[in-house]
Design a protein around this nucleic acid. Structure first.
Lengths: 119, 119
DNA sequence: TGCATACTGAACCATATGGTTCAGTGTTTA
DNA sequence: TAAACACTGAACCATATGGTTCAGTATGCA
């Protein structure tokens, strides 16, 4: 059965709830970047961006590696996989209810006449 | 292009970052429930559960209707649709990178010999 | 060696979050 | 009409979050 209690889901959804962090994910999807790169791109102090990167890293959405003085950030290998999987499993669980409702709406839209149906 | 800045995504990912709220979504996926029902189920005060429901409602994940003294909560019609869509669009954007990496890993696993490749 | 670069960590701040209690308001029902 | 029920709202509390500044540490380069 689907589990809703998961510290990992807590962490990754929380990580995704901030627009700056979603922006960082998008950026890293284009190309890897240092903390300095990201801080400049998002008009933020180095320290501030570092915190965001830590949050993304703890959520498993990003991995980093420090070489010399530079810490390079890249997209986590399985980024969004667990989260997307959680969502899909729920949408499938709920599909019966959703589809029933979708049908009603579809009928209303297409036929432009009244549909009587109760749950 | 994909947009990462969205108050709606902020709200819904934040709503999903709490295990109790994910539990409420699962519960409402089975059957509608009153605030009292949910409060009992999750061992919480009425007031506490009310707050969670408000958060879910503002994220568009749940809708409620008050009839008499009872407020009935149900799954929002488009629940998780926008969020799943956001994730999928990113996973597609990133797919080239992921697949390239997946291939490397696959090679390593299947062939059990060294693979030389650099980005 | 000496300076600039890139990050790190501690401390601070304002606001948000997840929970509570307590005191209501409006609705049913005996 | 009176009591019980279901919710609502205000106030409070501890902790987390998103940002800052300031003071390091470690690395690279002239």
């Amino acid at each position: 059965m689907v589990q809703y209690a998961s510290a990992h889901l807590d962490a990754s959804f929380a990580a995704l709830s901030d627009a700056t962090r979603r922006g960082v994910l998008e950026q890293l999807g284009r190309t890897n970047a240092s903390i300095t790169d990201l801080a400049e791109k998002f008009h933020m102090t180095l320290t501030g961006m570092k915190k965001h990167v830590v949050v993304l890293e703890q959520a498993g959405l990003v991995t980093t590696e420090k070489v010399g003085r530079v810490r390079t950030c890249r997209l986590g290998l399985g980024a969004l996989k667990a989260e997307a999987a959680w969502m899909e499993s729920y949408r499938q669980l709920w599909s019966a209810r959703f589809e029933a409702l979708d049908d009603v709406i579809e009928d209303l839209k297409l036929k432009e006449r009244q549909v009587e149906r109760t749950e």
